[in-house]
């Protein structure tokens, strides 16, 4: 890819990545959403997090990998327990990263 093509690509990608992020805030902020829509939107965050968690743990390299060889599944278990028990992002992250490092280096 030529120098110019790369710059065109960067500008094109930046436009299509910025617009869906900023347009809703720019356009919809002046309206009051109807109650049913607000209710529906209140489920978007749990749904998004459910999907992201599933993908990041069960398809860490982009392909679905549900097997005992998937380290992410093993690291998921202590991390979830610590998250529920301590409700601390710091400790969850610490335990998750440590577990992963141990699994990677010693298993």
């Amino acid at each position: 890819m030529s120098e110019t093509s790369i710059w065109i690509m960067i500008i094109g990608v930046s436009l299509v990545s910025i617009l869906p992020r900023i347009l809703p805030v720019a356009l919809f902020s002046r309206y009051e959403f109807p109650k049913p829509l607000k209710r529906w939107l209140s489920f978007v965050a749990p749904a998004v997090l459910g999907a992201l968690t599933a993908l990041s743990v069960l398809a860490p390299d982009g392909d679905i990998n549900i097997s005992i060889h998937n380290r992410y599944i093993w690291a998921f278990i202590p991390t979830l327990l610590v998250a529920i028990k301590t409700r601390s992002l710091f400790y969850s992250l610490l335990v998750g990263i440590l577990t992963m490092a141990l699994l990677y280096n010693f298993v």
């Binding site: 990041s56 743990v57 860490p60 979830l80 601390s88 969850s92 992963m100 699994l103 990677y104």
Partner: peptide
């Protein structure tokens, strides 16, 4: 183990 930083964050924020 940094590969698990974002998954760990998702798990915790989901909780």
């Amino acid at each position: 183990g940094l590969g698990f930083a974002l998954p760990a964050m998702y798990i915790c924020l989901l909780v």
